[in-house]
């Protein structure tokens, strides 16, 4: 296969990024539960322990709070840890170290230290894992100054943003949707970075801006492809980073299309859609709006086990198609 068209899965892309980071910088190491010979709960670390040894691919006890704290302590004293939470839901167990320590240490100490830690969070529903293994908690962390929070939506970005995160002097939280791990896409060889804090326009269009995150980017693109047949021309903005948010790309897109639909998997209320809606409402783009802003987010419920209920909990392609069609046709 032509190297330029080389395809990797999202999980393989992350693994390759971690390997490149470890090759480039001996301070980089991995920590997490069952990331060694087991290969990680989602096989993201895979066989890295065989290549880099147990000293650099460290299996921790099941101690999310302590483990996160160890990663923070190692980061402030010269190392570059990449810490894997087995499921993003377990961020709740490590929250103290993430929110009170990692995010604030540089600030509290007047800039005397940096905390270059990367934390990875397999997130989202769709795996039948029910309420405690399916949440999307990125907005929790997005609310905390001192953290950077990213949600790569493609294999290309998963690799490039992880390499950007490792090079970043501040704590970077990466939310990886579990259903994306098997997604295949073009991933260049070698080292490259995708900037944190920069959204990407995945599809240009005139009639409606969909701002989507993570797995909803692909669903929005699928919806846009269907609506193209109806003569509706949709622009899809992949937010990629929720802190710091790329306001300008969103504002410019809405000024062009005059309509905004926010699509995200996390619970709708008080989520990223509220933030994107507000930033548009507060900007000059407000005057360009031809319709109310609409949010499509997760239902106000924990994620259920039953597969039909589970699907109904988060936006699906038909939901996006319906909302977009209504918006453009002025039903709303």
């Amino acid at each position: 296969m032509d190297a330029a068209l080389r395809e990797l899965s999202y999980a393989q892309a992350i693994q390759e990024a971690m390997a490149i980071a470890m090759d480039m910088d001996e301070r980089v190491f991995l920590m997490g539960e069952d990331i060694g010979v087991y290969g990680g709960a989602f096989q993201v670390t895979g066989d890295l322990v065989e290549r880099y040894g147990a000293e650099r691919v460290i299996d921790t006890p099941i101690s999310e709070l302590g483990g996160a704290g160890v990663a923070v302590g190692a980061a402030v004293t010269g190392m570059r840890p990449i810490f894997e939470f087995q499921f993003s839901d377990f961020a709740t167990l490590g929250m103290e170290q993430i929110v009170n320590q990692a995010a604030k240490m540089r600030f509290m100490l007047g800039g005397e230290v940096s905390v270059p830690v990367v934390m990875r969070f397999p997130a989202g529903s769709g795996t039948g894992a029910a309420a405690q293994h399916s949440q999307s908690l990125e907005a929790w962390l997005g609310h905390v100054p001192g953290l950077k929070v990213i949600q790569p939506a493609t294999p290309h970005d998963a690799k490039g943003m992880l390499l950007a995160a490792v090079a970043d002097p501040d704590p970077v939280m990466i939310f990886e949707h579990k259903l994306l791990y098997k997604m295949k896409g073009h991933v260049p060889e070698g080292h490259y970075t995708v900037p944190i804090g920069k959204a990407e326009i995945r599809r240009e269009g005139r009639d409606l801006t969909i701002v989507a995150t993570s797995i909803m980017v692909q669903k929005a693109l699928d919806a846009a492809a269907v609506l193209e047949g109806e003569g509706i021309d949709i622009e899809v903005v992949d937010l990629r980073t929720i802190r710091p948010i790329d306001r300008q790309t969103v504002i410019d897109s809405v000024k062009k299309t005059s309509r905004l639909l926010c699509v995200y998997e996390a619970v709708k209320t008080l989520g990223i859609g509220a933030e994107v809606s507000a930033l548009v409402a507060e900007s000059e783009a407000f005057d360009y709006l031809d319709a109310p802003i609409v949010r499509l987010g997760g239902a106000e419920t924990p994620i259920p086990y039953n597969p039909d209920l589970e699907k109904a909990t988060v936006p699906q392609v038909p939901d996006i198609i319906a909302a977009a069609r209504d918006l453009v046709k002025g039903v709303r």
Partner: peptide, 10 residues
Amino acid sequence: IPIAVGAALS
């Protein structure tokens, strides 16, 4: 306490 352990790991 965990931060100290991390520093010791470094």
